[in-house]
């Protein structure tokens, strides 16, 4: 596990690849209390990082700083030039009543480079290929509200993948989805990571998602710990992160984080 006083140490040791994004001593406040304090974090090409922490811990702020649509109050963020970043927002933030079809959503990904309004034949074929890969073939003309929860999540993944990103960033990808959809998302992200794509996500879902990831950052205003789940998910770190006592068990080779019963805490 990374030393709390020097959170970048293990990161640097573990990283032999190129650094896509380097968060260097970043602090942020929205005009009131500090929501992020002196965060050091680097994201290498082909890495897979999950950011966990309680609500209001600064996870989404950190994600927005990594994405570059929020400038930190202090510190610096360095990005490798020319690398494409794609973002998948929480499905709960999507306006499902917006009049838009599946293919229109996917085509948005290249809005900054293509000027003409309507998709060319080649673009439509590209979209079909991405949708087919994600098991959404034939749904091009369906309104986004008419899809199942899993399909809705995958449409926004399809939009991100259509951008052919070097770094895929996801905010709570398993929030508000059922167990089956969560499995689909975890498998899909694992495949993308194996294919060489760097993935960064935030999650509240420790057992369903975070324990499956190669590297976890525990954040609660500051970076509490950074490392593999086995190194990071300890009762001590979890209590510092969540402010409540938690137990870590092992079941079938997987870690299982549980609440400590009230009488024993």
């Amino acid at each position: 596990m990374t030393n709390v006083d020097d959170p970048t140490r293990l990161d640097e040791v573990a990283s032999a690849g190129r650094i896509l994004v380097e968060v260097d001593g970043v602090s942020h406040s929205y005009g009131g209390p500090v929501v992020l304090d002196h965060i050091h974090l680097s994201i290498e090409a082909g890495s897979f990082l999950g950011i966990i922490g309680p609500s209001g811990s600064g996870k989404t702020t950190l994600l927005r700083i990594i994405l570059g649509n929020l400038s930190p109050t202090r510190g610096a963020v360095r990005r490798e030039p020319g690398k494409r970043v794609a973002y998948v927002p929480q499905v709960e933030t999507v306006n499902w009543n917006f009049p838009i079809t599946v293919s229109e959503v996917v085509l948005m990904s290249r809005a900054s480079s293509i000027r003409h309004p309507w998709a060319t034949g080649a673009e439509r074929r590209d979209v079909s290929v991405v949708l087919e890969q994600l098991g959404l073939g034939g749904l091009e003309d369906r309104h986004i509200r008419e899809l199942s929860g899993g399909q809705q999540q995958r449409v926004f993944l399809a939009r991100a993948l259509h951008r052919q990103p070097d770094l895929l960033v996801l905010d709570e990808p398993t929030s508000g989805v059922d167990v089956r959809t969560r499995h689909e998302v975890v498998h899909l992200l694992t495949d993308l990571h194996r294919g060489g794509m760097a993935v960064v996500l935030t999650t509240h879902d420790i057992n369903g998602l975070a324990t499956h990831l190669p590297r976890i950052a525990c954040v609660n205003r500051e970076l509490i710990a950074l490392g593999s789940p086995r190194d990071v998910l300890t009762p001590k770190v979890l209590e510092r992160t969540y402010g409540a006592p938690m137990d870590v068990l092992e079941h079938g080779g997987l870690l299982l984080v549980t609440d400590v019963p009230l009488e024993s805490s």
Partner: peptide, 12 residues
């Protein structure tokens, strides 16, 4: 539709 993601995707 999605100003936050548009911003990240190169749309001004």
């Amino acid at each position: 539709f999605d100003p936050e993601v548009a911003d990240v995707s190169g749309v001004n």
